[in-house]
Nucleic acid binder design. Sequence first.
DNA 1: CTGAAAGCGCTTACAG
DNA 2: CTGAAAGCGCTTACAG
Lengths: 412, 412
Amino acid sequence: MGEHRPERPTRRTRAKASTPAADEPEDGTGRADGSGVSTHRTGGARPRQTGGTGPQQAGGTGPQPAGGAAGAHVTLQDVARRAEVSLATASRVLNGTTQVRADLKERVLAAASELAYAPNAHAQALARASSQSIGLICHDVSDPYFAAIARGVTRAAAEHGLLVMLASTFRDPAREVDYIAMLRAQRARAILLVGSGFEDRAWERSMGAELDPYVRAGGRVAVLSRHRSLRVDTVQPENREGAAALARTLLGLGHRDFAVLTGPRTLTTVVDRLGGFRDALAEAGVSLSDDQVVEESFTRDGGYAAATELIRRGLRATCVFALTDVMAIGALSAFRYHGVDVPGQVSLAGFDDIPIVRDLVPPLTTVALPLEEMGERVMNLALRDPARRSRVERIPGEVVLRATTAAPRRPT
Amino acid sequence: MGEHRPERPTRRTRAKASTPAADEPEDGTGRADGSGVSTHRTGGARPRQTGGTGPQQAGGTGPQPAGGAAGAHVTLQDVARRAEVSLATASRVLNGTTQVRADLKERVLAAASELAYAPNAHAQALARASSQSIGLICHDVSDPYFAAIARGVTRAAAEHGLLVMLASTFRDPAREVDYIAMLRAQRARAILLVGSGFEDRAWERSMGAELDPYVRAGGRVAVLSRHRSLRVDTVQPENREGAAALARTLLGLGHRDFAVLTGPRTLTTVVDRLGGFRDALAEAGVSLSDDQVVEESFTRDGGYAAATELIRRGLRATCVFALTDVMAIGALSAFRYHGVDVPGQVSLAGFDDIPIVRDLVPPLTTVALPLEEMGERVMNLALRDPARRSRVERIPGEVVLRATTAAPRRPT
DNA sequence: CTGAAAGCGCTTACAG
DNA sequence: CTGAAAGCGCTTACAG
């Protein structure tokens, strides 16, 4: 310990010239100071320019922290050498694939620990032709809806020893395609597409161009909330039925005049929830006039803006349905800001039942979806035997009446 | 197209025996049905058992979707062959590293597109000795605090073309160590540790055992909200100062009797915020009695439970400080449930300014932190020139007075 | 500008 | 049970 590790030699000569095991630190864990990370570039030590493009060497003449050059990873070869066994044997004990003589096993384990060996996952992925990670693509992790689902996904992934690569598209279709390409390059074991897709031919085609070869090569894809055009394992919340059930409940409360705060109609979820709601109203002979449907972005601010616009147009409805809880949160604040009492003057309902809506004042009426569980399900669906035919798991929504809804003041 | 691709041969013979270029589909994108993903296992086609451990071949005699065997990724070699150039040339045009004759370049590009080639990121990482991903470790993605930070991180990572591998520890120290090991194996370009660390010797040692060799080998680590024991690039919210400023503001409102709702004292953030608050009170000659400090988990439910416990003990304070907004949300609901008016009977303040607190009723007084920006900063810090000495970016918190705080009824 | 070949760090038949 | 060696799919000096 405390020895300089030589500058990483060029690739050609590396294997032969690398530091003999004897120069390695004696113990990767039992360091005297016990303080955790102590390796730190010393103050004034500017890296020496080595010329060319080779790796730089940390210079300096003062007290030198252990390890000098950057990029010098311990390899299996190093471990094998120190344990005085073959590469194959070292690999075997570390993977527990075959029985290995007890003493050799012990030596390998000791060497690995002493050198603080960490296998190179890329090399393993290459040799095994399979990786330990999955990809999760959603619109925005910071949206409580996706955050809850992501929680379920990461939890399920952890149980399988998988790492999740997270991508937020910020609702940009092009970015989604890019991410799929990256995940494909990573040879992710599975790609999870979470959230509404876009109703767009060109986009569907580019998606297919990426996804198609991916599944053909053995990749698994599973989606959540996205049924059109993708014949893959699916977790499908019953948006249409949920919205319809909500409509009937609201009708039952006595409402006849409705307004809807919606997101972009290019999103399948919008189409389904709006359609289900409208159809259920129609069955009761109630129609939804177009100027009572306000379209904004699928965000809290979108909900705020939509509610404000609704007020501007003249709030004729006694009940407002925001297509997502997140929009409903914005709407509730807008109503409050404009002095519109909820549920005194208007009732308000959302969809999703994200955790926070219980803490709103008043607590929000909504259609509850088991978000975290849905996340676990997509993950598990993607990990099923690929030979089995694709499956759609339908998740029913449950109408939860809370305090933002009440009977209308004077039922029409 | 529509041709069977042969079962993937065993590794030994693969290179020579693989399908000649002529058998490849003509175009990866211009598929007739235009429907996106169409590759899908046909209904009744059970995979034939091929015996041994080799890859399975999708059997079936009916109409067969394009692509048969799983695991058959298109390689650079396939592209080179189809373009009738060398491997090296194909690599060069795809990477744009060197000038390549226009016609060859064109052929390579065409071949790559026709075969829907996706480079194997693992092979690239191995050959280049660098990967395209970073690791993000936090306590819980679904917590709005971490969700906001994660948003900043993923956004900044995207700008650098990096993928982020997300891990939630659910506040389990052991899990954190495990994730670092995995990220190290992935040769993540950087590891971001977000959120309070644990005040635990043994844990610090295991962390060091993983992190140490990682940075020694050139890995970058940056942390957010975690100063003890880690001498690495740091984004440090001024918890102590923020809490102190909040205390002074509250004092200025006339409060003299305080209570604090806190998380586990093993978290550094707890120590700092509680300490800063208490010290500022002390400077004003106000002391915080131990039975007015309630410890619970750092969650919404923890806040609810802590507030409830406070009420049970006899709510003597006129002002309650919840160490995080998330706890404050729970506390607010508990107060409401128990008929304690906020701010009429007690004032309540939080810390962090997560987006939702603006929509609470009443809106929460808190110490604002630029969460998303903090996420961007850790990411960028981790990407700096590794030769430069480590840096600590201090993020001041700003006291934001909203409606949960007021002057006490009868100032003592 | 282009190609043959070595090397990245593993795993795993194959042959003792 | 163990080791030598091929192969995974790339990149990149090196030598035309």
